[in-house]
Design a protein around this nucleic acid. Sequence first.
DNA 1: AGCTACTACATGTATAGAGGAGTAGAGCAG
DNA 2: CTGCTCTACTCCTCTATACATGTAGTAGCT
Lengths: 263, 263
Amino acid sequence: MLNEGILVNQIDPTSDRAVFRQIADQLRQAIESGRLREGEKLPSEAELIEHYSVARMTVRQAIQELRNEGLAVAEHGRGVFVRRRPPVKRLASDRFARRHRKDGKAAFLAESEAVGARSEVDMISVSEVRPSKEISDRLGTGSDQTVVSRSRRYLRDGHPVELATSYIPVDIARGTKIMEPNPGPGGIYARIEDQGHTLERFVEDVSTRLPTREEAKLLNLTSGTPVFRLIRTAYDLQGAAVEVCDTIMSGDAFLLSYELPAH
Amino acid sequence: MLNEGILVNQIDPTSDRAVFRQIADQLRQAIESGRLREGEKLPSEAELIEHYSVARMTVRQAIQELRNEGLAVAEHGRGVFVRRRPPVKRLASDRFARRHRKDGKAAFLAESEAVGARSEVDMISVSEVRPSKEISDRLGTGSDQTVVSRSRRYLRDGHPVELATSYIPVDIARGTKIMEPNPGPGGIYARIEDQGHTLERFVEDVSTRLPTREEAKLLNLTSGTPVFRLIRTAYDLQGAAVEVCDTIMSGDAFLLSYELPAH
DNA sequence: AGCTACTACATGTATAGAGGAGTAGAGCAG
DNA sequence: CTGCTCTACTCCTCTATACATGTAGTAGCT
């Protein structure tokens, strides 16, 4: 496949811009201008070496730069391809509205079926742990008190997109289905309300960063995909925190939407 | 400076894990365990070559991996250092409350002074443009209608942290201080309300990705820092969109906080 | 004191070469 | 048709070398 027509210019060796950067510039330009479309194959190392008359490491550096920028992905033995962007899913700010729980649905599943995506949950584990300071501060529990921790992974159309761990004070969770892998219809928020803690509001703190290696592995992230970290605290009518949920979301799979009153 | 004591293990050449990855693993472990603290210098290339008895390109690949992960930054001529994380600023969800405008403050400045940071705005430019489809869809204007575009960059303690462009329909902006670089006390939201468009609510759509080269340059981002893209639409009492603000925020400088009712 | 030059050391760029390992298709044996 | 091998092509790992460029401290001159 000789699609070198993509590369229009030659290299200026007298320029103070490094040769490998100039090559990266041209490839980047081809991608951004649409001459190379999503999923399309970039010229191979051999073709680039031939075309530019440079050493192998030089073209590899150029390609490495594009990979770091998240524009391209390499597949061993096949080639380097323009990165495909998965469709993003919009998470509306009413995703915790009570009517969804009344329908017997947990938030993630309700959201997903609204856009026709098939969702699953796996890697569910429930345990009793001593929370980190960050969590116990939010829950308002003493740092010596243990809490119930529920971890799980969400998949959309078979692809992992989100890791979540909920922390619930033991005095709320003990003796309920919150301690079981499947908490029943409406999810754990429905169970918390069953316990007499009517939910009043949530606070979500959103930050972004690159994933740790562990996160990248569990979410199957290609280099160049950041993640959202979303920490949600749920408060009951008395203003007490009844749950903290620590979530890592694949950055290219979500769009978070919030509505704010201007009051 | 011989701080090789950080590296406890040797390399297993029979392992199927590449040598440069094993070296990266050890350095990463040193960083994550705290044996190497923020800002501290990693062993130099020469020291690593000596310690592991490998070629220069091999240690460079190891270091490159850490740089890609955002754990380390290289300074030409000085060394490679554990990345410093700037303090993050919390953006509360009431940042557009009317009382702030009453005080004569625009949102960004009000937020910043709350945490004692010195803020500035620069690179202000105002023009009339044909909006992209994404913007005109949100504004509900025809794609042929022009809108007023206001771009600016925000700095905190002298460091650029945010790029923002506001789009306002011309029939609201024309003949007002919205067309001027300095829109007066309370910012453009105060001017929009002066025009009889009482603000009722905002919708913020938040996504994350790696910065473009342009953004990285303007925000002075080191490789491995993602950005937030926040598109805010402001609606008046009649439910009409009166402004759309497209914002790129340095991902390591902000924490977005939102409050949601459980209704 | 203030300046320059030099030196040591750091990372950056580029070349050349040798295997290794995954992919995919062609062709052949059964 | 199925399953296998062979081959060509792809990216991956690692070595070795050379020179460029930025930083920082020192020695020495003015």
